[in-house]
Amino acid sequence: MATAQGDTSARTSQTKRPRRARGPATPALSPAAAHDLDLLRQMLLIRRFEERCVELYSAAAIRGFVHLYIGEEAVAVGVHQTLSEQDAVVSTYREHGHALARGVPPEAVMAEMYGKATGCSHGRGGSMHLFDAGRRFYGGNAIVGGGLPLAAGLALADRMRGDSRVTCCFFGDGAFAEGEFHETANLAALWGLPVLFVCENNLYAMGTALAREHAQTDLAMRAASYGMAAWAVDGMDVHAVEKAARGAVESIRAGNGPHFLEMRTYRFRAHSMYDPDRYRPKDEIEEWKKHDPVTGLAEGMRKAGFLDTDAQEALGHEVMEAIDRAVRAAEQAPEEPTEDLLLHVTGRHEEVPS
């Protein structure tokens, strides 16, 4: 496992190191250790991917709006442990981490960031509109709260077909203030739809503190008023996230209607790359960084004897090589041909032959 030292932004050296002489065979990891290693690998991939996006955006290699997920990795990774390939996922415009956790290849995500034809949305969506129907990943949605009604529609379709599927809908505390949430929550509870509402409460929406926007800041309690099971979770602890999501998903599959999880988390970066981030104290950010989900899991693994320095270094190199491959592939990928610009466009006028 490579030099995955949590929030360290410095890029791991890409120079090749001499091979070490083989020692005794490494004992097989226990199921618990192997699972933790996989969680760490996924969170580290998201963290390093986002850090590379900062570099590429600063170099104008990628353009448009970019909303980083740094600090919130435990939510995406923990929740996805409990979902099957048949379940659907609806996301927000801060969705790079959700897409990667869902299994969308880094090459497809990075190519979309570059606006290339090999991107998961063929280069047409960019950072805010990642989409992969084959993996039932339905966006990426630039409208605050816009994914909520879509999630209800997907769940209703599954219910009408008799499919045993769950639709997981990620959204932020800002979307909780939108009418779409309350309308969707009401219908989902009324109709008993198989929806998992995952509210990523990072306390600031786009830039307004929770207490300045909501008279009652206990979002889980408010969601429960619609008659659905709801509770708050430490969103900086991937184990706590997975445990809560697993219980909720199992209950939904058992026919107990929608569930709501308020993931109490924090984004370490500004709302977007354009945001000067002047609305929150710097010491608050540093205090939250002490609860970094990546370093927290790595430290727990070291204490449990699941992770040593060599293994952590190996994991870090593995992740950085994967991101380097994604960047190279994106840089070499073709632009969409001009003649294809009207493909996938609904409602366009077709000339009727005379």
Rank of each mutant, 00 (worst) to 15 (best):
A240F: 06
A240H: 08
A240P: 06
E242W: 12
K243R: 13
A244W: 04
A244V: 15
R246H: 11
G247S: 13
G247A: 10
G247R: 11
A248F: 00
A248V: 10
A248E: 13
E250S: 08
E250C: 13
I252Q: 15
I252M: 05
I252C: 04
R253D: 12
R253F: 10
A254F: 00
A254Q: 07
A254M: 04
G255E: 10
G255M: 02
G255V: 13
N256F: 03
G257W: 00
H259Y: 06
F260W: 03
L261P: 09
E262Q: 15
E262L: 04
R264V: 13
T265N: 08
R267E: 12
S272R: 14
M273S: 08
M273N: 07
M273W: 02
M273H: 00
M273D: 01
Y274R: 11
Y274Q: 06
Y274S: 15
P276N: 05
P276V: 06
D277T: 14
R280H: 03
P281I: 00
K282V: 09
D283R: 12
D283I: 04
E284L: 09
E284S: 05
I285C: 01
E287A: 11
E287Y: 12
K289H: 06
K289L: 02
H291E: 07
V294S: 13
T295G: 12
G296W: 00
L297S: 07
A298K: 05
M301S: 08
M301A: 03
R302A: 11
K303E: 04
G305P: 01
F306N: 01
L307P: 00
L307E: 00
L307M: 01
L307S: 02
D308S: 08
D308A: 07
D308L: 12
D310E: 11
D310L: 01
D310M: 00
A311H: 09
A311Q: 05
E313Q: 11
E313P: 01
A314T: 12
G316K: 03
G316L: 10
H317Q: 07
H317Y: 03
H317E: 07
M320L: 11
M320E: 15
M320F: 13
E321A: 15
E321Y: 15
A322G: 00
I323S: 08
I323N: 04
R325E: 11
R325K: 12
R325M: 10
A326Q: 03
A326Y: 04
V327S: 06
R328D: 14
R328M: 07
A329D: 14
E331F: 09
Q332E: 13
Q332C: 15
A333W: 07
P334M: 03
P334A: 14
E335I: 10
E336F: 05
P337T: 07
T338Y: 08
D340F: 10
D340N: 11
D340T: 10
L341S: 10
L341E: 09
L343Y: 11
